[in-house]
Computed example of a mutant assay.
Amino acid sequence: MRRKTMWFWVIVLILVGGIVYGLSFWQTSSGVKPPLPTVKVGSVTAEVKQSTYCWANGDEAVCEDHALPEPDDLQIVTVEPGATIDVSFHEAPDNETFHQIVDGELIPAERIVPSEPGVYLFETGGDWANGDSRYVFGVEVTE
């Protein structure tokens, strides 16, 4: 009987430790990561990926640096040529940026999809009281 009791407490401790670790990990990772914006390109919602950011929440702060993506890094959505790109942030940033990614470079861009067929990558972001954050997404214009 003692052996069963010992194993019972070992299992209980493992489960409790796992739950505590899981809750602390969830709180840490979600508490200091900026929320993703919603990006609509014409009538299509683009998948947005978190890029480089420094974000603070209370006494915690996290910075992550990400390289500019390649088309294979993103879920590309098909859009109409010349579609308007609308970015809705969780709250308006103090300043906002919008770029097209061309050959690994950030080029200031208008929020309009080019008319020529092809795959286009974009980077947007801004600065808030909690920090700064950049986001990336991609679209494809077909003939």
Rank of each mutant, 00 (worst) to 15 (best):
Q100T: 05
E105P: 01
G138V: 13
E47F: 01
Y120T: 08
W9E: 08
K49F: 11
Y21R: 07
G131S: 06
W26E: 15
T52I: 14
E80K: 13
S51R: 01
W128H: 04
F89K: 04
R3G: 05
G42W: 01
I11A: 15
I11M: 15
S24D: 11
G125P: 08
V62F: 03
V10M: 09
H66D: 06
G18N: 08
M1R: 03
W9Y: 14
T124G: 05
S115D: 10
C54M: 09
P69E: 03
D86T: 15
V87N: 02
D103T: 10
E80L: 12
G131E: 03
V48C: 04
S43T: 11
G18Q: 05
A129W: 10
I76R: 01
A61W: 08
G138W: 07
Q50S: 07
F8E: 08
S29Q: 14
L68F: 04
L68Y: 08
G138H: 11
P37C: 04
L106F: 06
T5A: 07
W26T: 06
I107A: 08
A83E: 06
Q75A: 10
D127M: 15
K40Y: 11
D132S: 15
K4S: 02
R111C: 03
S29A: 05
G104Y: 03
V79H: 04
S133A: 15
V39G: 02
I85P: 15
K40W: 09
F137I: 08
P71M: 05
V136G: 02
G125I: 01
I112W: 02
K33H: 00
D72A: 12
D73E: 04
W26I: 03
R3A: 08
T97K: 04
Q27D: 14
L106T: 13
V62N: 09
K33R: 05
D94K: 13
G82N: 14
G42Y: 09
E47T: 11
H99E: 06
I11F: 15
A129T: 14
N95I: 07
Q75W: 04
P117Q: 12
R2K: 04
L106I: 07
S30G: 00
I107N: 12
H66W: 12
K33N: 01
D65Y: 11
G22Y: 05
L121E: 02
A129R: 10
L68H: 03
